[in-house]
Design a protein around this nucleic acid. Structure first.
Length: 411
RNA sequence: GCGGAUGUAGCUCAGUUGGUUAGAGCGCUGGUUUGUGGUACCAGAUGUCGUCAGUUCAAAUCCGAUCAUCCGCCCCA
């Protein structure tokens, strides 16, 4: 125990921050359950190939951010850096193709070896959804609507922007890639070092570079939309039509490409300007080829994931805990009675705080700190009369009631 | 992985050009007739000045390294 601190990029979560995270997850669950999504829990680590093969060899996550380790049997395992690959793996492992569509949501810790910043941690929590087996735009619309409703229920829709783009089907994507690469090669000398590199590995990523020199080149680059074939174009138009119909405001962002290889057609991000450089709060897209890549056959998929910590940071107000009732014995002769009363009130559904020591005054102070709404006071007088004194801690008013009527009186 | 800033009580911070026992507010503990809290008043406790190694008669203050946090880049949730 040399260092009494947690590992870089990890945090102890408690108090207000934890309460907010809990709220994000509970609001999320209740929203997506209305759409018929059921919770799934997959392991926190998987065989390394599950991520390495499916997220894309050139993605940053795979090349530099995964927590990989060899277990005692010599297997290479990886702490999950994201949720989709694991859920899709579970889908394939369990032969769920038999009963489509499949709708899952999940929440839990993810791990990426990155430089920590505000809104970026090495262990962080995601809440995400996956809808498998639906090829029509209706799925895209529903999935985005669900994300939108989620943020609205959190009271954040006003500070979040929906950005959307289409990467088209594989044919469109390949066609565009070819056009883009030849364009970028003509301007090779004007590109930043990073982008020269990207040109080799993942040319689409040059599009959202923040380097000024790259932006200038990208300004006149061929538009993705122009490379979409008829089918892809129709698909995207249908998705946008649905969003319009539901009154969901969005902005088409031609530069939005997303980091992982498995996306096709619709990709989207919900962003805020309140978190500095980590503005993306929820992101997702369609991944029609992923199930097939894992040997699960031709099954379409779409989903999104949000950063629970990031959303929690946007929640302005602290989450109020339910106010308990404080049970206060005046002296030792009423300790037993107080114990019984506390237990009975809890059985009746009340949240009860009974402090663990001190005289009556101390206990009153504790009751106040616990934000109790009422105090149930029992002293020798009350004990003899089979009554208790109820004090309203907001108004200070108190009254004596029969012990037998206590539950009724507190309602 | 790269660039910049910061690091003093539980929290937010002050600490002058290096110079005796390092401060404030909030919080915490105790008290102001021992059957009554929240307000007020009184008293009190708390710091290896991030860590380690240097310069100096003397370092919270200067130099270096290291760790951590924050901001930006990369990238992402």
């Amino acid at each position: 125990m040399e260092k009494v601190q947690c590992v870089r990029g990890t945090y102890d979560l408690y108090g207000a921050a934890k309460r907010k995270m809990k709220k994000v997850v509970s609001v999320g669950s209740s929203v997506v359950e209305k759409y018929g999504f059921e919770e799934i829990e997959t392991p926190i680590f998987e065989f390394t190939e599950v991520f390495a093969r499916n997220l894309g060899d050139t993605s940053d996550i795979v090349t530099k951010e995964m927590y990989c380790f060899a277990d005692k049997g010599g297997e290479s395992l990886t702490l999950r850096p994201e949720g989709t690959a694991g859920v899709v793996r579970a889908f394939v492992s369990n032969g769920m193709q038999q009963n489509l569509p499949v709708k899952f949501y999940y929440t839990g810790p993810m791990f990426r070896y990155e430089r920590p910043q505000k809104g970026r941690q090495r262990q962080f929590t995601q809440f995400g959804v996956e809808l498998l087996g639906v090829e029509t735009p209706q799925a895209d619309i529903e999935i985005i609507a669900m994300a939108y409703e989620f943020l609205e229920k959190l009271g954040l829709s006003g500070q979040v922007m929906v950005e959307i783009n289409s990467l088209g089907d594989t044919a469109s994507r390949d066609a565009y890639r070819e056009k883009l690469v030849s364009y970028l090669q003509e301007h090779y000398t004007e590109l930043s070092e990073d982008s020269k590199n990207r040109l080799e590995k993942n040319p689409l990523r040059v599009l959202d570079s923040k380097e000024e020199c790259d932006k200038a080149v990208v300004e006149n680059a061929p538009l993705y939309a122009d490379s979409l074939n008829e089918e892809s174009r129709k698909f995207f138009a249908d998705v946008l039509h649905g969003l319009d119909l539901l009154g969901i405001k969005y902005r088409i962002n031609n530069r939005l490409v997303r980091g992982l290889d498995y996306y096709s057609h619709t990709v989207f991000e919900l962003t805020t300007d309140k978190l500095g450089a980590q503005g993306t709060v929820l992101a997702g897209g369609r991944y029609n080829g992923l199930v097939g890549q894992m040997g699960g056959g031709d099954v379409a998929g779409i989903g999104w994931a949000c950063g629970v910590e990031r959303l929690a940071m946007l929640l302005a107000e602290d989450i109020a805990l339910p106010r308990p009732i404080a049970v206060i014995p005046v002296g030792e002769d009423t300790f037993d009675a107080a114990l019984e009363i506390s237990y009975k009130l809890r059985l009746a559904g009340f949240s009860v705080e009974q402090s663990y020591g001190g005289n009556m005054k101390k206990r009153m102070i504790k009751a106040n700190k616990a934000n109790a709404c009422k105090a149930v006071i029992i002293g020798s007088d009350e004990l003899a009369d089979k009554t208790v004194t109820i004090k309203d801690l907001d108004s200070g008013a108190q009254k004596t009631v029969a012990l037998a009527n206590l539950t009724e009186e507190l309602k």
